[in-house]
Design a protein around this nucleic acid. Structure first.
Lengths: 165, 165
DNA sequence: GGCTAAAATTTTCTACACGAAACATTCACC
DNA sequence: GGTGAATGTTTCGTGTAGAAAATTTTAGCC
């Protein structure tokens, strides 16, 4: 476990983690900067663009899309509603559900912002060849599967601790 | 720009972005969960591990290390001090400087937590073959370079706008 | 049909994290 | 001794999540 080869691989892994973190934080920073240019926060821009692309959405659907909890999105929508960017509409079909929809003001703002969130990242990715993209996707999926199984292991360990007590 | 091939590549790119976000959010969530098991928050675990590895640090040094603003770290250290995990010590040499150091309680806690932040991600990466790791690193670096140049372009455009006004 | 229990959806409440800007203190330099 | 930079804190608005509460729907049962 401590010969030259494994040391080299370990260095590669650290470099991958570093590159990964760099890409993530930088993409977030850029999104935020673009949003600020239009008087929005990062998450607000994400929401505006999501609604522009998909039309009105139940709050919980929106939460899933932006990978946040309902309680988080409630706050974001509160502030956007205060600014007149979106409105809440009770669903007639299922009155538990609240649809979030863009106002005219929100929609026009959405049209005005050219760059979608993550577009810089996507744009950088588009410089990859088809082979490179495919290979990257394959490797990321492999890593994702591995993380996923880790998550399941942890959940099982958790459940086991539960039965013991 | 709308034939079958480019459409397919576009789908790959979306999938890459999605996998990327999944990996990041999941790694953060797991770190947070491990921290919670020891009565800490995610950032607090990061700080504890950092201080264990490097010894006492000025607050601004700590801020750099964990990629956060001084104002953010002030709050984190406040809460950790309240819990008796760290102490603030004014530097005798430069009285502007506040050294953050682990207490006995903080140090013993640090020893008790095996997993460092991002270890889950690193662990998942370690299932890659040497070739895969090298290829992933190469592609990520290519993307990172591309993002970097985008950032510089934006900075120049910003500067130009500045001189015009 | 009407009642009750369970499930689904959203909001409220509480605590922490985060950054920008304004501020006080201290240092370094002239 | 005055000026400007460095260091840390405070304040304010936002984002983030989890737990509990509120509201409505759904299913099962008589």
């Amino acid at each position: 476990m401590s010969n030259a080869l494994t040391t080299e691989i370990k260095g590669d892994l650290d470099a991958i983690v570093e590159a990964f973190l760099y890409l993530y934080t930088e993409s977030r920073r850029l999104t935020k900067e673009i949003a600020a240019r239009h008087g929005l926060t990062g998450p607000q821009l994400t929401v505006v663009k999501m609604l522009e692309a998909l039309g009105e959405l139940p709050l919980s659907r929106l939460s899933e899309k932006i990978r946040a909890q309902n309680s988080t999105v409630t706050g974001i929508v509160d502030r956007m509603e205060r600014e007149g960017l979106v409105t809440r509409v009770r669903s007639a079909a299922d009155r538990r559900v609240v649809h979030i929809q863009l106002t005219a003001k929100g929609a026009s703002l959405a049209r005005g912002v050219q760059v979608e969130p993550m577009d810089i990242f996507r744009d950088a990715l588009s410089t990859l060849s088809a082979e490179e993209a495919r290979s990257l996707l394959r490797v990321l999926r492999k890593v994702a599967r591995r993380v996923e199984s880790k998550v399941e292991e942890a959940a099982e360990a958790e459940a086991k601790r539960g039965t013991e007590s």
